[in-house]
Design a binder for these strands. Structure first.
Length: 720
DNA sequence: AACCTGCATGCTTCA
DNA sequence: GAAGCATGCAGGTTA
């Protein structure tokens, strides 16, 4: 039985330790729904939790007996799980063992760094002398200078239950920022860290320490390459000893690509300005060591609140986790605000995908979006995990707006990956930077927002060009609605403009490819991609290009002008509010429904069971219910089609009813059969059904944009 | 209906 | 070809 802090009633009202998990969401839902203790039902209280366990000072908590602060002494003070798992740490003030020790009966699995019961005496009265670890070099290294030799001996001499500290490497922890990527080659400190810690992390528990670590305290270590190669060999040879990865935990850390080095795109590329800025903001007495950075993907910055962590980085710089639930991590932003996120993983293809959950509020607070970069650093002393950021672009020639959260960092130039020196000279044109930043890994987001907007507008335009194919359609009647089904995909026709004249009659306008004059044609005419005045067979007078444009063309120009202005406004507005835009193909599909109408942007419909992004069928291009209803005067293609179909349908219905009426008059003995879709109900007369509401029937036959219960008399007038 | 969660899928990159 | 990872999606949960 593993007793983790999440299973303890945090309010101390019942003091119950329960093996049941706290309700889902703990402790991520800060400010959100509270979790409840399964035993006493008490609401989880974040503040009180922090007080009880001193989350503000990682590793420190009060002794239950003397109430004085005591450092748990564990090497992962930032890791609450293991702090408490460790248990058994003596208070330096009263020397009494931490009471949680007695609750540690078992540890989940052999991959835990603290399997079994800890030996409290090791740390007795020594905790204040122990610097938990040198983070960044290796998460679990003790320095040779502050770890008592007997401790190492005690921990490693045949006690399999001891901790699995990694080899102490006499690397000096550089508090210098990694300026200009000079050290990011094969010999970079980061690579060394990655190589060393990753190579070591694949090793089983105490054997590593016994065989590799102990001598290195006393003697100069072998060359790095030798050590690493040995360790890699060791790792391979000991794979059988590592708990076999199962579907639940995925392959344990240390195997796979990540073992060799951090990919260049994750290596921190902070400028002097950035570092000094963060440094100054946080605490001038502290040292900040960049660990890694990542360009936010759309899903990272999305509302799901899951930031995918590069596997190598997660396994190098974050605490090891052996179960997929992971551990809560406290992250501090550069303003000192603290966030609690859940560091966990998902089993994925016999591997792991590491994620940081609950980052939404943090990312929003920093006003980050896809394409921006988050930079994880370590702040010493205190060993705090700090999250910084770098905005993806700074508009060329435009001073960046001061960001209340990120301050001057917002003004810093974007550093393009692998672009060499991190100085102002490395500023590249905005377009290029944005593209490369977003798409360095995935090509799914290679467009910048303006390009995407252009494409969206093209999709809008494309909607206006789509025409039925030449092939003969198959007419299918579904609930009295005639649907034309084509075997061929739609073809591109010529763009036409629909207007409404003074008599409220619909007019269709098309521009001649030859003389460029706008011609009025019947509203039901489908225009091919090439159209000239001579094709205007419906109006022989206007077949000649010399014929002047008619009077109504002024109104058309007005419509065109307002359309262009609207698009222009939309471009401006969209660029301002691009943060809230959907991205990718969904956005394109969504934008495709806009057409010329002045409707707010609405999300894509999900009503069509075979809907795919970009689908332009009349159902799919409707916005979701309740949103973006078309106005009765709307002249977009959708509404025009709807109106045309509805008119046809109503005419046929009238004709059908009239036929039925005639038939009834001829033979009153013939019973009237309900029409399909009208439902079973008492039949009072020819085609009359008490269960059939005419207005409701109309709605059922119309797409969502022009239906719903709120169909207005105005609409009815238009439709009938 | 919207949101959340835990994968599953498939594209991209790397060795 | 293998590994990494962005994102889709289905089922469950919540408002």
């Amino acid at each position: 039985m593993s007793l983790l802090p999440v299973n303890v009633c945090m309010n101390g009202l019942c003091g119950t330790i329960t093996t049941a998990q706290w309700k889902r969401g703990w402790p991520m839902k800060v400010g959100g729904a509270a979790a409840l203790c399964y035993t006493c039902g008490t609401e989880y209280d974040h503040v009180r939790y922090c007080e009880r366990f001193h989350l503000n000072e990682p590793g420190w908590r009060e002794c239950k007996y003397c109430d004085k602060p005591v450092h748990c002494g564990c090497v992962v003070s930032r890791n609450l799980y293991e702090c408490l798992d460790l248990g058994g740490i003596s208070c330096i003030n009263c020397t009494r063992a931490h009471p949680l020790k007695q609750l540690i009966n078992d540890i989940p699995d052999s991959t835990s760094r603290f399997p079994g019961t800890w030996l409290p005496s090791v740390f007795t009265n020594r905790t204040s002398n122990i610097t938990p670890l040198i983070k960044g070099l290796d998460k679990y290294q003790f320095t040779s200078s502050n770890v008592p030799k007997e401790f190492i001996t005690r921990c490693t001499s045949g006690n399999d239950n001891g901790p699995t500290f990694k080899s102490p490497l006499p690397l000096s922890l550089s508090t210098e920022p990694n300026h200009n990527n000079q050290n990011l080659g094969s010999n970079s400190l980061y690579e060394q860290r990655a190589q060393q810690s990753l190579a070591l992390s694949a090793l089983p528990t105490s054997n590593v320490v016994t065989e590799e670590k102990t001598p290195s305290f006393e003697t100069e270590p072998k060359s790095r390459q030798t050590v690493i190669s040995q360790l890699k060999i060791k790792s391979k040879s000991n794979r059988g000893l590592i708990s076999v990865s199962d579907n639940r935990v995925g392959r344990p850390p240390g195997e796979g690509r990540a073992r060799t080095q951090l990919l260049p795109r994750y290596q921190p590329k902070m400028t002097d300005q950035e570092l000094s800025k963060i440094h100054g903001d946080v605490n001038s007495n502290c040292t900040l060591t960049p660990l890694f950075e990542k360009i936010l993907s759309a899903s990272d910055a999305g509302r799901i609140g899951r930031l995918v962590l590069p596997k190598a980085c997660a396994e190098t710089f974050f605490p090891p986790i052996s179960n997929s639930e992971g551990v809560p991590l406290k992250i501090q932003d550069i303003k000192g605000k603290e966030w609690i996120c859940q560091f966990r993983f998902w089993p994925n293809n016999n591997s792991r995908m590491y994620v940081l959950e609950g980052v939404t509020s943090c990312i929003q607070d920093m006003q980050l979006q896809a394409g921006d970069t988050v930079i994880f650093s370590r702040l010493d002393p205190g060993d705090k995990l700090v999250i910084g950021c770098r905005k993806a672009t700074v508009s060329a020639g435009t001073p960046a707006l001061p960001n209340p959260v990120n301050g001057d960092i917002e003004k810093l130039p974007t550093i393009v990956e692998n672009e060499g020196p991190s100085n102002l000279d490395s500023v590249v044109p905005t377009e290029k930077k944005r593209t490369r930043n977003i798409g360095s890994k995935s090509k799914r987001l290679h467009m910048n927002s303006e390009d995407a907007l252009e494409l969206k507008l093209t999709w809008e335009d494309a909607q206006e060009y789509l025409r039925p194919p030449v092939s003969k359609p198959t007419v299918v009647i579904i609930e009295n609605c005639e649907l034309e089904e084509y075997d061929e995909p739609p073809v591109f026709g010529k763009k036409t403009i629909f207007t409404t004249n003074a008599a409220e009659l619909q007019e269709q306008w098309v521009q001649c490819d030859s003389c460029s004059k706008w011609r009025k044609i019947p509203s039901d005419v489908i225009v091919s991609s090439k159209w000239t005045c001579s094709d205007n067979i419906s109006d022989p007078d206007r077949c000649l290009g010399a014929f002047p444009e008619e009077k109504g063309v002024k109104h058309l120009y007005k419509v065109l002008r307002s359309s262009k202005e609207y698009k222009k406004q939309k471009v401006t507005k969209d660029s301002e509010t691009k943060q809230e835009e959907p991205t990718g193909l969904d956005a394109l599909a969504t934008m495709a429904v806009l057409g010329e109408r002045n409707e707010p942007l609405a999300g894509p419909t999900t009503k069509h069971p075979r809907h795919r992004p970009g689908c332009s069928c009349i159902v799919c291009i409707q916005p979701p219910s309740g949103k973006g209803k078309h106005k009765p005067s709307c002249i977009c293609n959708v509404c025009a089609t709807v109106k045309r179909r509805f008119k046809t349908m109503m005419m046929r219905k009238k004709k059908r009813l009239a036929d039925q009426g005639r038939q009834m008059n001829q033979n009153t003995q013939v019973p009237v059969v309900n029409q399909p879709g009208t439902g079973p109900g008492p039949v009072l007369g020819p085609g009359l059904d008490l269960n059939c509401d005419p207005a409701e029937e109309q709605q059922m036959m119309l797409p969502e944009a022009v239906t719903s219960s709120s169909i207005t008399p105005e609409w009815r007038n238009v439709l009938t």
